[in-house]
Design a protein around this nucleic acid. Structure first.
Lengths: 345, 345
DNA sequence: ATGAAAGCGCTAACAG
DNA sequence: CTGTTAGCGCTTTCAT
């Protein structure tokens, strides 16, 4: 008879669903069972062992809902991903997904569970208040400000345990963790120009605040060094970027010699379009991306890009959130991006 | 005064935290408030409006924990990602992350929340029972069987609302949704051979059951067509695959002319190593991947691969789970993979 | 060291 | 249509 058979047998025998059931069998009170299972030191070792044995034997698990209700804390952190600008893609964006993975790791390690909620603010005005007020989470991490900066900022006044991944703005009220996007933009433009580019383009949507900051940084450098720069709008969804980039490339052929892509995902697509048109990289056209996804070292040629440290970001988010859960009013954390020089610029 | 100012003002005035508080203000009983807020039809329209107005004014949200406890359902689906074979990578594996994104979409649409839990079975024998028995979720989706097939199968006997993403085995007891990996392996090998390859290699870990099935399918075809095939073990984590593949390539130079990579992620890395060694693709060496990630159409040359329909998979998982939540004992769902011919084979 | 008892905030009979 | 009541299963004083 295998272990699991034994378990099944035990399970089907006496149904032990509640502390009270277990208490009856053990011949003690529910209170004692609760204490024993919680590892409370006040319980007699013998009693505790007996209770634990019975619990194991019957595969008993205390009901978390009841426990959470009673203790007024959930042990769950909500992670919200607002899908503002570009509903389809943002979520499957490798960057956000990787961040989510690291977040899951960090939270698990600290003993928290993670409740994931994707929200479409346009369809649900009240998303953040609802999440916070639901009583289901002890705190909230918002991944990406999307176009919800104002709303998030408003909420932050009355709700401490919230940390946001995103761009830091002077004077904002909510706590963010994120890369210095403006600096990243500068690094990208500097590299492009240092490699000889004189007519730059920023490839990507300039609406999202993070991207706007990257573009702004690049513009600042371009202006200072007397180089032109223009925005070439694209969406983030890969099924559309291809055509969009192709269209741009068709129009501006020869007018630009350096591309700063808003993300590596866009850069990779751009690289392919460039290859398809036999435009030599980096000799004819230089390209710099942003993020440093795993893929970026594998492209042909390997992509020069601006790295965001995702793991550090996740660590920072969780760390700050836990401190806020303890009542501390933490400062934002701005992480420095790093230029990774490979072969496209 | 902005909307949020008004909200803050109202909030700070009378603290309305419970149904009872609200009931007192509205001059009705808690029961009526509960019904009104639940949209119960038995409530007078006037009363309902009044209650809703007060609720809105005070930013009141009913406590979910209490509600869930009382109703004995949580509205939450647990998603577990067991990290068995290759702890580090599995989670940030693009494929799983994309599946998770689609899952989040589907579940949200059906009104469920998603609780994400990454588990390391080696460190936590009891992960599945704990998740299920926690009382925090109405049902569970397991992403990937990893090396936990037996455990999952055992649990399935006593727990209906569970669906697993993974490979289907003859006679298994748990409900899975997944691609026909064996068929996928056949498609890959057939393509490789049809393009002229005569000495094949399977690049990847053959331990995980899904990969084993892919390899088995390829072997079957190879044998039938009188072509050799061997396994070249690699891990999934991209930081290690590079070197591992390089090492393999060094040893087997010229001994093989067709590579079936267990995943596109591996294939992409392989492509890069091949480029670095100036091995011509597909003329010298043919490559076929598995998954058809977005990146796979952007590689140089674009990757021939076996597509898994992730969106359909997510839909299937959620659909079956909801039916199981209604007591139905559903069959497994095996999705057909499709060969996507591009330029590497 | 243990038991008894009072809820956590909500919902769903059951009356009216 | 609405009020009353009895818990959901657990934790935690307060006694003993």
């Amino acid at each position: 008879m295998t272990g699991s058979d034994a378990q099944n047998l035990a399970r089907s025998a006496t149904k032990v669903r509640t502390l009270a059931d277990l208490a009856k069998i053990a011949g003690v009170s529910p209170g004692t069972v609760s204490r024993a299972l919680a590892g409370n030191s006040l319980v007699n070792a013998k009693t505790r062992e007996k209770i634990e044995a019975i619990a194991r034997e019957h595969g008993f698990r205390p009901n978390q809902m009841a426990s959470k209700l009673r203790r007024q804390k959930t042990g769950v952190i909500g992670v919200a991903i607002p899908l503002g600008h570009d509903v389809r893609q943002q979520i499957s964006d490798t960057f956000f997904m990787t961040l989510l993975g690291h977040l899951a790791d960090e939270l698990t390690e600290k003993g928290y569970d993670l409740m994931l909620r994707r929200v479409i603010p346009a369809q649900d005005e009240d998303w953040l208040d609802r999440f916070i007020g639901s009583g289901m989470v002890d705190g909230v991490i918002v991944i990406g400000q999307s176009d919800q900066f104002e709303r998030i900022d408003d909420v932050a006044d009355g709700y401490l345990p919230m940390v946001v991944w995103g761009n830091h703005q002077e004077g904002q009220r909510h706590c963010v963790v994120g890369s210095d996007n403006r600096l990243g933009g500068k690094l990208a433009a500097e590299r492009l120009i240092a490699s000889g580019a004189k007519r730059l383009a920023f490839l990507g949507d300039t609406q999202p605040i993070e991207f706007a900051a990257r573009y702004a940084g690049a513009k600042e450098v371009a202006k200072k060094l007397g180089v032109s720069i223009r925005a070439l709008p694209t969406h983030l969804a890969p099924d559309r970027t291809g055509e969009e980039i192709a269209a741009h490339l068709g129009k501006i052929e020869g007018e630009i010699d350096g591309i700063f892509a808003a993300t590596d995902t866009i850069a990779v697509t751009c690289l392919k379009e460039l290859r398809d048109r036999s435009i030599a990289i980096p000799s004819q056209l230089k390209v710099v991306g942003f993020d440093d996804l795993p893929i970026s070292s594998q492209t042909a040629p390997p992509l020069t890009t601006v790295r965001q440290d995702i793991a550090a970001g996740a660590k920072g988010l969780v760390d700050l959130l836990l401190r806020r859960l303890n009542g501390e009013d933490t400062e934002s954390l701005v992480l420095p991006p790093h230029l990774i020089v490979r072969e496209t610029a």
